[in-house]
Computed example of a mutant assay.
Amino acid sequence: MIYVANPIYDSVFKYLMEDERVAKTVLSALLKKDVVSVELRPHEYANETNDKISMFRIDFGARIRTGENETELILIELQKTWVETETLRFRQYLGAQYSDKNNIDKQKGDHKGFAYPMVTIYIMGHRVGDIDVPVLYVSHKAYDYDGHEVKKGMPDPFVESLVHDSIIVQIPLLHGVINNRLDKVLSVLDQTKRDKDDPHLLCLDESVYADNNDMNYIVHRLTAAASNPLMRQNMNVEDEYYSAIEDRDTAIMSRDKKIKEQDGKIKEQNGKIKEQNGKIKEQDGKIKEQDGKIKEQDGKIKEQREQLNQQSEQLSNLKRILKEQGLSDAQIEQMMSNK
């Protein structure tokens, strides 16, 4: 067992991939093609960081074997990230490749030429949705209106200029099982081999790579990186950076949780207030109904008073007439009582 530098760190990954032999080995395994030569493109690597993301990218020009004496130049944009990020970041870098005039092969087609074919490789430090395979190949094909694949004339340089294939590697799904050439290459990224006391190191079984000179070369290069003080310092810096991001994200998650709890309480209170308002509205309706009945009763009482007043006035008038006719008060009272 040997201890090597962990290439999950950007500084180690850059040190590994800037070596042409390593790049050819890794890209040949990923592309499942014979990569004859590799060159770093202008602005070949960059470590893009801010308070939300770290993304490492390398742009290659790779010449692959297409026949016994034939090769083809393709562009490879390799992007690596530790943390989950917006796909917009990947699209922005991809857009820069499409708009770069240096990526046009003017020897093909008319005087304006066509773009070199391109493959994008994404090495992810996190899982992508529910996809459960460690390496995902996304290839484009052409179809006619009826859904039949168009093969005649394909691949066409015009079409290849406008579309590209992608390879997505999910590091968390690399679990040490080696079934093929690619598994062996990617095994140096397998985080289940990380040393429990020092995340900067992976513990590898050197005998697994004994029969492969290219893999031995990669392992020895990672061993050299592990003993490099500057490399260890760079890994410490990355740890501090991501620790700060993790602390910030934890604080944000805690804050969001509290806000969510408060929103739940506010929603519950609003529900109770709404319920109380409903009861108050119902009571107001009953009061309004009672007021209507009282008003109706008041109207009837008023009507009855008016009738009594009329009757009283009529009796008074009758008494006055009878008195004018000479009847005494006793006679008038007797007549009234008889009625």
Score class of each variant (00 low, 15 high):
Ile76Phe: 08
Asp146Arg: 10
Pro117Glu: 11
Tyr242Phe: 15
Glu86Gly: 04
Ile168His: 05
Asp51Cys: 01
Asp165Lys: 11
Glu72Asp: 08
Glu238His: 12
Lys302Trp: 05
Gln79Gly: 07
Gln314Gly: 02
Asn216Thr: 07
Lys14His: 02
Leu201Phe: 09
Val185Gly: 03
Glu289Pro: 00
Tyr3Cys: 01
Met215Pro: 04
Asn212Phe: 03
Asn234Ile: 01
Glu149Trp: 03
Tyr143Thr: 13
Arg65Ile: 05
Gln79Arg: 07
Arg232Gln: 15
Gly109Gln: 12
Gln92Met: 03
Gln304Asp: 00
Asn180His: 00
Gln331Pro: 02
Glu303Trp: 02
Gln290Thr: 02
Thr250Ser: 05
Pro199Thr: 08
Asp144Gln: 08
Ile301Thr: 02
Arg57Asp: 07
Val138Arg: 12
Ser312Pro: 00
Val150Met: 10
His164Gln: 11
Val219Tyr: 04
Ala226Met: 10
Asn69Val: 07
Asn180Ser: 09
Gly292Cys: 04
Asp59Lys: 09
Asp256Phe: 07
Pro117Arg: 13
Glu77His: 13
Glu39Phe: 00
Asp329Leu: 08
Glu306Cys: 03
Met335Gln: 04
Met235Phe: 10
Asn50Ile: 01
Thr81His: 03
Gly61Tyr: 02
Gly95Arg: 04
Met253Val: 08
Asp205Ala: 12
Arg232Ser: 15
Met253Ser: 11
Leu16His: 09
Asp19Ser: 02
Lys300Gln: 08
His126Cys: 08
